[in-house]
Design a protein around this nucleic acid. Structure first.
Lengths: 149, 149
DNA sequence: CGGTTATACTTGAGCAATCAAGAATCTATC
DNA sequence: GATAGATTCTTGATTGCTCAAGTATAACCG
């Protein structure tokens, strides 16, 4: 129970700080950033919108609107799938990748500052492990999807 | 870094599940619930709006609008402070307390199910401890508008 | 085939939270 | 005791997301 409270509070506080900083310094939200990261790590730097939604924990419509913004900025472009006319790929552009690298610099520094200033490497490791298990297992159980992609 | 990703994902997934459940079963959001809990735990079941905002990590205006909803439902009432005309107490009504108890039942069960099904008591304890430290320490550092760079 | 069902995505309406700005009140200083 | 600066709270405009509904395509199956 304390863990839940802690999770709620620490997440809310951190997320707010991170988001504010990203918006102020780079003009993107934390969700935007996460999408850019997901795309950058994806093969050929592209993902189906559905998978993207799953990856950053947003609804399909949320992704549509988020990508609208990113497309308007030229960081992502839409590409129709050949074999399945329903799916449209979200493809990270070079400009988008550039933007990501740019944002990552300060963002990584912020993360490091927030975490490593307050927890030891061991604790961090333990935390990552616990949260990782919670997140993935939970995703499967609750969202009732995601075969551990 | 993995910890941050894990935190983001696990929180997003859990929060969504919890919020959906609370809305569906009790017609309140997770923030609403947290406010009710904070008030219930406060001395005389009342808090200043500023402190409430701090407690659930919302902006002052966010609290105003949230309390508007709660007041409309009769779960909270506004009470002017005698000694300082600026502050208005948010006071938990009996109906509000009743509502909280009602919601807590299923909510606690959900929390327990999500956590204890996936982590041992020891792990839970460790997680709570780590997150607690992150949350509180962070709150002080970042909320104080710590300059970037 | 043709019909049903499932999947991928978009759109309109709505909502909760944010920021920016403002009103009211307290506190400190001269 | 007036004036300047905090502090508490509210309001208007905007944002990012959700839900519900809709379109279009694919897959299954008689």
């Amino acid at each position: 129970m304390a863990a839940w409270g802690g999770l709620l509070r620490s997440h809310a506080t951190m997320t707010r700080a991170m988001n504010t900083q990203l918006v102020a310094e780079h003009g993107i939200t934390l969700s935007d950033y996460d999408v850019l990261v997901s795309l950058a790590n994806a093969p050929e730097r592209r993902m189906r919108r559905v998978d993207l939604a799953n990856s950053v924990v947003l609804t399909p419509s949320g992704i549509t609107r988020l990508l609208d913004r990113l497309e308007a900025e030229g960081w992502v472009c839409k590409h129709q799938c050949q074999s399945d006319a329903r799916v449209s790929w979200a493809v990270l552009t070079d400009a988008g990748h550039q933007k990501l690298l740019e944002a990552a610099q300060t963002h990584h520094a912020d993360i490091a500052r927030l975490f490593t200033d307050r927890l030891t490497a061991e604790e961090l490791d333990a935390l990552g492990c616990l949260l990782g298990r919670l997140g993935t297992r939970l995703g499967a159980a609750v969202a009732a999807d995601e075969p551990a992609a």
